[in-house]
């Protein structure tokens, strides 16, 4: 096994070849914000929250999909990066209807945590206040499109781990929307096994357990990671 040595924020890190900058940082205990990344499913490099600076490369690189290289010098927290992450966050907030005080995951939301993390006290863009639907046709779960940030974590977990492929993205550009089945009510999609993986994968309050009162839902992300490791390494005991 070849080892690559790199420097992240002035700390030397030695990791296995082929790992991403994100993994290397995690091993070294260095935090890089992420949103579309989810342990156990493929990475798409789409949310752009994990962008880092790499010396000698004149553009920013997404840590979740960039492999480490020998003698790489990475910075994860420069003023420039902080500003972009914040702006990116504001774009997400202005797009949907995120009224945290009445949300099922208030206090347990990755989006909310990140907003705090990047120091987003307010949003400089005018809110769009879209009128998006809420689908509670599924007996156990619901999806509120107003809170969806189109990270496609639900799409990937349902396809890659559960193998059901209930979700996909429809349209393109700013009109993108998550759909279940043939853009039909979730409860009518036969492919859904009600396994709940998408509920655990969702970083916001978009997909939720029904009958969950405001601010008590906690995700069981560990079980998700366990499942995918189990499948890959064929280890079925925890």
């Amino acid at each position: 096994m070849a080892v690559k040595t790199l420097k992240i924020n002035d700390i030397y890190v030695a990791v296995e070849e082929g790992l991403t900058i994100l993994k290397a940082a995690q091993e070294a205990g260095i935090y890089i914000p992420t949103l579309c990344h989810l342990e156990g499913v493929s990475d798409i490099g789409a949310c752009r929250m994990c962008m880092v600076e790499v010396e000698g490369i004149n553009k920013l690189l997404p840590a979740c999909v960039t492999e480490v290289a020998e003698e790489m010098v990475v910075r994860t927290n420069t003023a420039k990066l902080k500003e972009y992450r914040r702006m990116n966050m504001e774009l997400l907030f202005a797009e949907g209807n995120h009224v945290c005080s009445v949300c099922v995951v208030n206090g347990n939301c990755e989006l909310q945590n990140l907003a705090v993390e990047v120091g987003m006290e307010h949003c400089r863009f005018s809110y769009r206040f879209p009128d998006k639907p809420v689908d509670i046709s599924h007996p156990q779960f619901g999806i509120d499109h107003n809170r969806c940030i189109l990270c496609t974590r639900c799409v990937r977990v349902c396809d890659e781990v559960e193998g059901a492929h209930v979700w996909d993205i429809a349209h393109r550009g700013e009109e993108c929307k998550i759909i279940s089945g043939l853009n039909q009510p979730w409860g009518e999609v036969d492919a859904c096994t009600s396994c709940g993986k998408c509920v655990n994968a969702c970083p916001t309050g978009s997909i939720f357990h029904k009958s969950t009162p405001v601010a008590v839902m906690k995700r069981d992300r560990g079980s998700l990671e366990f499942l995918s490791t189990a499948r890959e390494k064929k280890q079925w005991t925890r």
């Binding site: 798409i44 789409a46 990116n88 774009l91 393109r172 550009g173 993108c176």
Partner: peptide, 21 residues
């Protein structure tokens, strides 16, 4: 840009709409 952005990444798909507005 709004009409043609593929929609995959946040700055382009959402940023175009905000800028247009």
């Amino acid at each position: 840009m709004m009409d043609e952005s593929c929609g995959k990444c946040v700055p382009c798909s959402l940023g175009s709409q905000k800028a247009w507005n």
